[in-house]
């Protein structure tokens, strides 16, 4: 593992903790943005340029813009909103988080322990992908041939979401 990856991981861990513990909503959003960019950097360093780029386009370039936009528009004057402690809700959230984490950790370790022998690497080794003309070409090819139907179904679902958003917003403005 290259030292740059370690540095990026440490930075993203620090940013993630800051995101969790800060009381300023903007700082939280910017830290999440930083985490996403650092993750994109890690993807790029292990040679998955396409994933890194898509991470930047979709998460950093689109979703986080929406987050920051809405935070800034909603509380323009009071940047630190009054936060009331609800001890019961907090304890419940912590318990739920720990429970989900424990379950996932148990499932993963159990899976790796019991199926260690029969992990078979798929056909797409990095040499094979390079011989087919690079990551993006292979992805585009399988997306538009093998997974064509699911691609279209997802685009239809997104279209429905867009129309629904317009309908909901329009009712409010009329």
């Amino acid at each position: 593992m290259s030292p740059v990856i370690v540095i990026l991981s440490v930075i993203s861990a620090v940013l993630a903790l800051t995101m969790l513990f800060t009381r300023n909503a903007i700082t939280s959003a910017i830290c999440l943005l930083g985490v996403l960019i650092m993750t994109a950097g890690i993807y790029g360093l292990i040679g998955e340029h396409l994933i890194a780029t898509i991470q930047l386009v979709v998460y950093a370039g689109a979703i986080m813009v929406l987050f920051i936009f809405s935070i800034m528009l909603l509380n323009l004057n009071t940047e630190e909103r009054d936060y009331k402690d609800h001890p019961g809700a907090f304890a419940g959230a912590v318990a739920l988080g720990l429970g989900v984490f424990g379950f996932l950790a148990y499932a993963l370790t159990e899976h790796f322990r019991s199926h260690r022998g029969d992990v078979v690497p798929g056909p797409f080794t990095s040499e094979y992908v390079a011989s087919l003309g690079g990551n993006s070409k292979v992805l585009a090819h399988s997306l538009f041939t093998q997974y064509y139907v699911s691609f279209e179904v997802i685009s239809l679902a997104l279209l429905i979401a867009v129309v629904a958003a317009v309908v909901l917003a329009k009712r409010k403005f009329d």
């Binding site: 340029h49 780029t53 898509i54 386009v57 370039g61 993006s136 070409k137």
Partner: peptide
Amino acid sequence: MDSGVIFILA
């Protein structure tokens, strides 16, 4: 990188 132009969009 083979995703050059999307990188610019990013």
